[in-house]
Amino acid sequence: MQQANLLKAGLWMLGAIVSFVAMAVAGRTIQVEMNTFELMLYRSGIGFAIVLVALAASPAGLGQIRTRHVGLHLKRNLFHYAGQNLWFFALTLVPLSQLVALEFTNPIWVALLAPILLGERLTRTRLLGALLGFIGVLVVAQPGSSTLGPGHAAALVAAVCFALNTIFTKRIMAHDSVLCVMFWMTLIQGLLSLALSAPGGIPLPSAHLLPWIAVVGVTGLSAHYSLTSALGHAPATIVAPMEFLRLPLITVVGSVVYGEDLRLSVFVGAAIIIVGNLVNMRAETRRTLA
């Protein structure tokens, strides 16, 4: 693989990591005044506007939003929306390092659910990866020695929802463009947020929250666009491990900005989860090349 492509992939992944970290800080700040549904309403609204501009500027234009798979888009976004709300909910209840470490179980859930939803074979390697992931979760959460609460449960369920989102995205990308996927994502999730926020009244953000809302709206798209662009320059076996750099960065942010403790168990557990992911990735690469 050309060194230039690896450099481009690394730079795009750096953009994705910075986007995810900025989204976490902004999301925690916004929830001082808003709940997750209201946060997601503003995020989806900003994202929808950006996508419309991108579609208008694209050579293919608005014609890209046509799809024969509206039902598939709806399923994908129901899981992604649930996962994103749970992630934002957990964001205020558990340390940032624990949240990200538990989120790293996403690929392991994909490996377990793909045989059911995509008809792929459940191999011993996938089971080994899942076992390592489960052990890693226990090390991170430390049941019995620390208090487990709704935040830990929300983070794990969010990871499962993100895994289902990944699986449905894989199916959709065989038919529709990235901009089409983003259009339906921001539209569906915006309508869901509007329906869930309207009964209690939709609050207007205070002046000091406006920049943070802009950050959430922009990073919600930039993170996924950067990740997709990185995959365009290098295979998933190279790109995916780069995302694990998000853990030490988010840990430093949590310590400096919020005074969170640096816990060795989080890094040990995350390392075990990462090994489980790498075991699955190596097996999938061999199967693809066979």
Rank of each mutant, 00 (worst) to 15 (best):
Q2P: 12
A54D: 02
F267N: 12
A60K: 14
V252H: 08
E120V: 04
F267M: 14
R28V: 04
S44P: 01
Y225F: 09
K8F: 09
A56R: 14
S44I: 04
S58G: 11
G217T: 01
Y258V: 09
I50K: 02
Q3R: 13
L262W: 11
L194K: 15
M185Q: 14
A101L: 10
Q98H: 15
A60D: 15
L6Y: 13
E103R: 06
P150K: 15
G10M: 15
E260L: 07
L278M: 12
G129P: 05
R263Q: 15
S265K: 13
L164P: 01
V216P: 00
I213E: 10
L127W: 06
W12Q: 02
T166Q: 06
L86V: 01
F88E: 03
R66A: 05
V137N: 09
A54M: 12
M1Y: 13
A230T: 11
R124S: 02
A4I: 12
L164M: 14
I65W: 03
A214E: 06
A236H: 02
P211G: 04
R263Y: 14
P211R: 05
A153D: 07
V215R: 02
T29Q: 13
E284L: 06
V215W: 01
G61W: 00
C180Y: 00
L102A: 09
L113F: 06
L209F: 09
M1T: 11
V94P: 12
L262S: 10
R287L: 11
P150D: 10
M281F: 05
P59M: 08
M34V: 04
P150C: 01
